[in-house]
Each structure stands twice: as C-alpha cells, then as structure tokens.
Nucleic acid binder design. Structure first.
Lengths: 232, 232
DNA sequence: AATTCGATGTCGCTC
DNA sequence: GAGCGACGTCGAATT
C-alpha cells in the first residue's frame, strides 16, 4: 500500500463527472491498483476513488498543467468500465509504501441468519412454553420463510426474522402467508414479525394485518442458546 | 489527520459484533475523531470504522492484553449510539499527523438530472423539428418518468434519460409505459431510451420492445442550450 | 424528528 | 456473468 499526503486536484469521469478543487488530501493506492482520496472529515466514504480492477499510470504534466502548478499527474483507469480518475499533484507532502500482506478479513456475528438460528434454538425461551419449530427456511413459491413453528394451541405460525423490522419485511411476510394459506394443511396459519428493532410504521402495518410483533433481545437469546447445538 | 500503519486486532460492537484478527493495516483517524481501518485490498469501504461523532481514548493494555502482546489499546465510542471500536495495537509501524485544512468538497457535474434538463431544453435540437415537451417528471403510479413529449406526428413519447443506459433503465421505462398505456389518452404512447452511452444488451432489449434508443451528446446539448433559460 | 429516495452505492449469494 | 437482496448501508431532500 502506498500512502501519500499531497496537495492535489482531481477529476473523475465515469458514471458521472466530478472534480475536486486543489487542496491537501490523503491519497491511498492499494496493492490492487485501487485508489482512495480522503479529506479530514466526512465518513468512511472517500471524496473520490477508483475501484479495482484498475491501473495507475504516471505521466509528466503538459503545458497547461505546468502553468497550473501541477508537478505530477496520475491517471487511474478502470479496466472494465473505462472510468477514469486523474489526480493532478501540486505538491507531494509525504509518500510511503508498506507491505501489509493479505488480510485475514472481517469476522461478523449477529446478522439476520444468526438471529434466525438463535431464535430457532430458543423458541420456547423467547415465545413461551409449548412452542415447537417445524423447520427453518420453510419453502414457499416466492422464497423461503425464515421459520415455520407451531404455537401452544397447535396453530402454525410463519416467522419472519429481521435485524431491523421495516415495512418491506412485513410485505415479504404477507406474501409468504398468502401463499402458505393455499396449502389446506396451513389454511389457518398466522404470521409473526420478529426483529431486534421494529419501526412504528412496520408495527402498525403488521398489527393491522393480524401479524404479531416480537422484539428480539440478542444478548438474552445468546444467553439461552445452548452453545453445543448452535450453527455458528 | 493521523495516519498510522500498525499490526493490530480490532473488535467492533454496535449494530452487530465483528472482529479483525491480528494483521498489519492502515489506521486513519480523522480530525472529527472518526476512524477507518483499511487493508491492502477491497474497495473504498474500510474493514472496520467508526463514524462521527465519536471520541477516541487510549489506555494501557490490561493483563490479558499484555499476554496477547498488545502494546496500546484505542477505544473509539460513538457519542449517540454507544457503538464501540477497540483497536488493540501489537506494533505501531508508522504514525504521522497532518493538517489537511477544510476540504472544498466534491463538485459533481453531468448527473442524470442535468442531462434531463438539457434534453428538455433542446428537444427539437436533439430529436428534430416538431417535437414538443409536455412536462418533466411526468407522474406514474410507480414513479415519475423523466420526460413526456409529443413527436411530430402527435404521438406521446415517454423518455427515460440515463447517463449510462443499462438493462435496468429499459425495465424501468417498460414499467412506466405499461402503466401510462392504461390512461386512454396515452393508449398509443411510445418509449424512448436516451443516454450518453447505451450498452448493447440494453439496446437489444429496448429495440425488441419497440423502444427507440438515442445516444445523447452532452457537449453538443450544452451548446444548443440557451444559458438564460436553463435550470442549473 | 421521521421518512423517502438516490448512490460512482458495495457486497455476497444464487442461478 | 447477470440478477436479487441486505447493508454497521450513508446522505440529502422532504414532510
């Protein structure tokens, strides 16, 4: 990785055209040729960038660029789309190269699949005694519903699990229910919307459609979970 | 901005839990306290990060951490959500601080909205005499179509404008046409797909559906445009 | 404050 | 490779 701090101006041409006026910025060139240009603020998104696969070439400034006090010009081209990033360097303030090696990568925990697995393992702990799991990823013609369960009264319940419960999740569950009810054995199936957080609009819509809402406590579920039987 | 290269391991706890095993990475601390951790690959997205507003504090490693060869520990806390990022530094390889000043920011040009405005202003210049604009952003139940126009024969034409014409743009226009044709006054409406560049697949699909394709010349349209009447 | 919508979205999976 | 959905989506414009 090459890490530079430079006074530069930048032009991008690709899905749109954009330019960055002259200022001091951090320019990061990764081993795969990709380039990131960061200012000292904003979020994790660079002001400008080029995604791999791409190639960086350096050239001398032309007459106009010299007149504009440009010392070096980097041109980064996207191999597939032809997008181009031109970095005009007015002054290189610092430049270093490091060998970072291959990163072992991020390990995630607590995503929807994990919530689904935890709830499947802790149905009685979360919903109460008498609940039984039929299966995870129960198939329907429009995709699998997260969990199919049976409540203490013996009624089937389709459970949609989300990390954040929003309206589109309720719509998704509604589609599943509509199709599942065509199966005579599931004609009386009910719906349950389970999420770590349920938005007010989603709750309103769900309850209007007779879908129960359950807020999941991830840490509590992890406590209930039997570590020997879990999937992750 | 503080730019460090360090052998580190990282834990994140917030919307999800995640961790990064020990490896050499770039750690960027911006003036607002936000932190980015980059490996030497991937795209512009960091492996891990903390968005502002947040505060970074450094502490000495505890007994377990010392046993794990940790030299320094940075803890970054999100002020509002309480999300936490813990960076355990095994070895600081390089550390520098720069004053970048306030960035003037990215200036965008040539986005779809601008193309749409230019085409609306130059309909006859681009498509030929006799074309008339009905309106921009003509509403349909699935969103507004960019332009509704009338061709020299008096037939309505729905025009979808893109910088890069790809298949999803043709699908979008097809949905608009389907709904617009339900209006008896627009039963004979035709479609036109206008873009600076039209991908072969998109052109094939469009023409198969009877949708005309027009390649827009941005510079020429800017030349035709009356600067006094334009929207930008 | 809440919501909707666009993004140079990116990323990861299925087909 | 294309299509589809989730994302620690982020961010701006709008209600």
């Amino acid at each position: 990785m090459r890490v530079c701090v430079a006074e530069c101006s930048v032009e991008y041409s690709g899905r749109l055209d954009a330019h960055l006026p002259r200022a001091i910025r951090l320019v990061m060139v990764k081993a795969d040729g990709s380039v990131l240009i960061h200012a000292d603020g904003g979020s994790y998104k660079p002001l400008n960038w080029m995604a791999p696969p791409c190639t960086l070439s350096e050239r001398a400034p032309d007459e106009d660029e010299v007149a504009g006090e440009v010392e070096r010009v980097w041109e980064v081209r996207q191999t597939k789309t032809g997008d181009m990033l031109r970095i005009s360097i007015h002054e290189m303030i610092s430049e270093s190269t490091y060998d970072l090696g291959v990163d072992p990568g991020l390990v995630k925990d607590g995503v929807e699949k994990h919530l689904q697995a935890l709830l499947a393992d802790s149905l009685e702990g979360v919903l109460g005694m008498g609940w039984r799991l039929v299966r995870r990823e129960y198939p329907t013609p429009v995709g699998p519903v997260d969990l199919l369960a049976i409540d203490p009264e013996g009624i089937h319940v389709a459970i949609e699990v989300k990390r954040r419960g929003e309206i589109d999740g309720v719509e998704q569950l509604t589609r599943y229910l509509e199709l599942l009810r065509r199966d005579p054995r599931l004609a009386d199936i009910r719906g349950m919307f389970a999420a770590q957080e349920i938005k007010p609009q989603a709750r309103t819509l769900a309850e209007d459609r007779g879908i129960a809402c359950v807020v999941l406590d991830y840490d509590a579920m992890r406590g209930m979970d039997d570590p020997d039987s879990r999937l992750f």
